[in-house]
């Protein structure tokens, strides 16, 4: 890959065999889903048709990352090859702009929450889970049903998240106790994405 991003139109004619998530048009579409997800916490956006052979967590990183981004591949969910394609600068979790984590593991990171004058200098955590749904029958211990409210939510919305350790939601509460400081979460499953910005109130129903 050259330094610049390729447009999808170039894809056919190249020999690189890069997956579609590294192309500008796909990244534009994935960004639109992320923007909707962040605007409407609890709304679940299916990315399957955009992924090619890649997984969702890599697709989200590819969409957001370039050489200016600092990131941490905390649980090695991203392959080395994809990590270098993302061009991001590798740093520790407490300094990273984006931290990629496995949600099934207990939360063991302490991302930056920004400062009072610059709350945007906070880490965004991309958490990988098993499944996201707008309704859920709790079947295993790691299945959660959350009731969300706050900016972007018309009243309340319920989401079911499978395969997330209970520590995540408690840590999130600590990180977000002093608005505007806080940490935004992008939660991805095998197929879909939802976001929990720092303003979202989460009530655990199960």
């Amino acid at each position: 890959m050259s330094y610049d991003l390729l447009s999808n139109a170039d894809q056919e004619s190249q020999h690189y065999h890069l997956d579609s998530i590294w192309y500008a048009d796909t990244q534009n579409e994935i960004f639109q889903s992320l923007m909707q997800a962040m605007s409407r916490p609890g709304s679940i956006h299916n990315l399957e048709s955009r992924l090619g052979k890649s997984n969702t967590v890599t697709a989200v990183l590819a969409t957001l990352s370039d050489a200016q981004v600092t990131a941490c591949n905390h649980d090695s969910l991203i392959t080395d090859e994809d990590w270098s394609l993302s061009q991001c600068q590798t740093v520790s979790a407490d300094k990273a702009g984006y931290i990629v984590c496995d949600g099934s593991l207990p939360c063991s990171i302490n991302p930056s929450q920004g400062s009072l004058v610059s709350p945007e200098l906070s880490g965004t955590v991309i958490v990988s889970v098993k499944k996201l749904a707008n309704e859920l029958t709790a079947t295993s211990q790691d299945d959660r049903l959350w009731r969300l409210s706050g900016p972007g939510v018309d009243g309340v919305i319920d989401v079911g998240v499978s395969g997330i350790d209970s520590s995540w939601i408690h840590q999130r509460e600590n990180w977000n106790s002093e608005f505007p400081l806080g940490v935004d979460l992008i939660v991805v499953s095998e197929t879909s994405v939802l976001a929990l910005p720092r303003t979202t109130k989460v009530e655990c129903l199960t």
Partner: peptide, 30 residues
Amino acid sequence: TQFGFLDEFAKKEIRRTVLKAIAIPGYQVP
């Protein structure tokens, strides 16, 4: 010029900024 005029890195920076702006309602993200 390419699609959208701006180079893709410029667009990515703006997209990251947009997500922060949504997450911190009303805050002016530089």
